[in-house]
Amino acid sequence: MHRIDGQGATSNNKFTEGNPATGTPATEVTADWLNAIQEEIISVLGAAGINMNKAVNNQLLAAITTLIAGGGVAVTAAGVSIADAGDYLSGGDVEAALQQLAQKVYAGTLSASQIRRSVVSVSGASQQTEAAHAESVVQVSHTAAATYTVRPDSTLNLPVGTAIEIVQAGVGKVSIVAGSGVNPIKKHSAFNAATMGQEAVVVLYKVAANTWRLGGMLEAV
């Protein structure tokens, strides 16, 4: 691609109509500039997998729309294996998976059943928030009371909106504790910040910097 540089172009490579009164010529439209423009447009069609058709005048628009939706070949990671986590990840390579996912997001057809949480199992009396716990189910198993400490943003800055599901997988209740620098955990005053018993599930939500809300199957005061 290049700016027009034919006879009569301005010093900053812009077009001019010229001025017959002063003898200033109009800008010459050169073949190399026209060919460059043509090939730039055709390359967009090719990236979207669209064949040129002389009778169709909206192919550039169709190509751009296709690439935005993920239907072209803008993502080039073919052959890189991934784990299949749903029908939108079928095919076994990153490029195909991302294109299928993008098409569903663009069309608004991505369903909740196609988004799966990871399950993290931990054991022991003392646990804390980890990056791997974000948007996951954390199963805490211990024979006695256990604590799950929410770390401050200074040591683990999870995004606002992050949710962590905590399951009391063992007989020991799990208490949710605010670490140093974290605001007191927000919850209803009728409940303690602890699971009510084995198999109980509680959910932590980060609502602001160093601020978390807790709800679910909590132990009554």
Rank of each mutant, 00 (worst) to 15 (best):
G18M: 02
T129A: 09
A200V: 05
V167K: 03
G92V: 10
N157L: 08
L156A: 07
N157V: 04
A77T: 08
N58H: 03
D153W: 11
A74N: 05
A193W: 08
T211H: 03
A200Y: 04
Q100R: 12
N53I: 11
V137K: 13
T211P: 02
T16S: 15
G8I: 13
S180D: 07
V119Y: 09
E40R: 10
E95D: 09
S81E: 15
E135L: 11
A78E: 14
G71S: 04
E199C: 07
G23E: 06
A107M: 00
G49R: 06
V171R: 03
R117C: 05
V202P: 04
R117P: 09
H133G: 14
V44R: 03
Q100V: 00
L61K: 04
S136T: 05
T24L: 15
L156S: 03
A163H: 11
A26S: 09
G172C: 04
A36L: 09
T76N: 13
Q7H: 13
S126T: 15
Q59T: 13
A31G: 08
A78D: 10
V150L: 15
A112F: 11
E95Y: 05
A21R: 08
I42K: 13
Y88T: 11
T147S: 14
I185Q: 01
E165N: 14
V202F: 01
A209E: 05
I50K: 05
A102Q: 10
L45T: 06
T16N: 10
Q38E: 15
V120D: 02
F191D: 05
H188R: 07
R3P: 10
G216K: 05
G181V: 02
E28Y: 11
V150N: 10
T129L: 06
G70R: 04
V44E: 01
I185F: 00
A83V: 15
G71N: 08
Y88Q: 13
Q168A: 12
T16I: 15
E165C: 08
Q139F: 11
A112P: 08
E95P: 06
V138K: 03
I166A: 02
K187S: 08
P152T: 12
L158N: 07
G46R: 14
G23Q: 01
G91V: 03
V182D: 01
T24K: 08
H188F: 02
R3F: 07
A96I: 14
V203G: 00
G70L: 03
P159W: 04
S121N: 15
K173C: 02
E28H: 07
K187F: 01
G92E: 06
L45P: 04
S118E: 12
A31F: 12
N35C: 06
A131Y: 02
G86S: 12
V174S: 05
N183C: 01
A102C: 06
Q103Y: 00
S180M: 02
